[in-house]
């Protein structure tokens, strides 16, 4: 039982941290709810960061930490699927990559940019996405969202990949991104309540605020550690429990973060929505908390 990173993972995390410092918040014209970090994405591509999980000394733990940390910057680009699904498909596929689980209907994140789509169900299928295969749709979420024009028209190929393992990896990737956006939202609100004064003292000095933020910190940290254990083990039970826990804590935390940021947090001039409106989509991924917990119950205590 060790919680420290190995030397390669530490170096990787340090370099990553330096790269992320350059990603600043800027409002997007025309009521834009997300800001595509194309420059950062190009840096990741050039540095080979998308392939970290396949490096023996880095592995899925470093890749999951990367997804977590990148989720904390106010720009976004497709990373979760590239970092934790793409290296385990058994063949080269292009990125950005979209992921659909169990034929879930409706819009998917990053589909407008994606050049390929993976479907995890009873088997694992893959299809290239030629121009026109997906269309962008308007959305409340802080992601580029899109719909497939005609899913059955795609050239689906069944991959020789273990669906249980890929499902677990997608649960880990989702939990990593979710705990990352929650942590970033919490940090933004902490900065605000340290500075903003009312009734002659900082908001953060009121115990009614302190306890809720302290609880949020405890819950996010617990979910993050569960996610990391699941990243190491890639076992269905650990992954389902980690995702379920991250999804469970999201409602109360996103509510509190907006509550303490006040009206400013409802504007597009402030980045809080970039994290909370990703959390609100991620908490429903793969059927949400209920589905994750039912899956865990079967893994631990047997089928009903």
């Amino acid at each position: 039982m060790r919680f420290d990173l190995n030397v390669d993972q530490q170096t990787f995390a340090t370099v990553l941290g330096q790269m992320l410092q350059g990603a600043a918040f800027a409002p997007v014209e025309g009521w834009g709810r997300y800001d595509l970090g194309t420059a950062l994405e190009a840096q990741f591509d050039a540095g080979g960061f998308f392939d970290a999980a396949a490096e023996p000394d880095l592995g899925p733990v470093a890749a999951a930490l990367m997804v977590h940390d990148v989720a904390g910057v106010p720009v976004c680009f497709e990373l979760a699927a590239s970092a934790l699904i793409r290296p385990f498909l058994g063949r080269d596929v292009p990125r950005p990559l979209a992921v659909r689980v169990d034929g879930q209907p409706g819009a998917l994140r990053y589909l407008p940019q994606a050049r390929g789509i993976v479907e995890i169900g009873e088997t694992v299928r893959y299809a290239d996405l030629p121009d026109g295969a997906a269309q962008p749709v308007d959305s409340l979420y802080a992601y580029p969202m899109g719909e497939l024009t005609d899913p059955e028209a795609l050239d689906w190929q069944t991959l020789d990949a273990d669906p249980a393992k890929l499902r677990a990896l997608w649960q880990v990737a989702t939990a990593a991104e979710l705990t990352g956006v929650l942590r970033a939202g919490l940090d933004a609100v902490l900065a605000h309540v340290r500075d903003r004064r009312q009734f002659g003292q900082p908001l953060g000095a009121f115990q009614g605020v302190q306890h809720r933020l302290a609880n949020a910190a405890v819950e996010i940290e617990g979910a993050r550690l569960m996610m990391l254990r699941a990243a190491q083990r890639q076992a269905p039970g650990d992954a389902a429990l980690a995702l379920g826990r991250a999804q469970e804590i999201t409602n109360a935390i996103t509510y509190d973060l907006h509550q303490f940021m006040g009206a400013m947090g409802l504007t597009l001039e402030h980045p809080l929505h970039r994290w909370t409106y990703r959390a609100k989509l991620l908490k429903a991924e793969m059927g949400g908390m209920g589905a994750a917990y039912l899956s865990y119950a079967t893994d631990r205590w047997g089928a009903p």
């Binding site: 902490l190 309540v193 003292q201 953060g204 000095a205 933020l213 302290a214 910190a217």
Partner: peptide, 8 residues
């Protein structure tokens, strides 16, 4: 842990 200020 969160470095929040002490109340009045």
């Amino acid at each position: 842990h969160l470095n929040l200020p002490k109340g009045a």
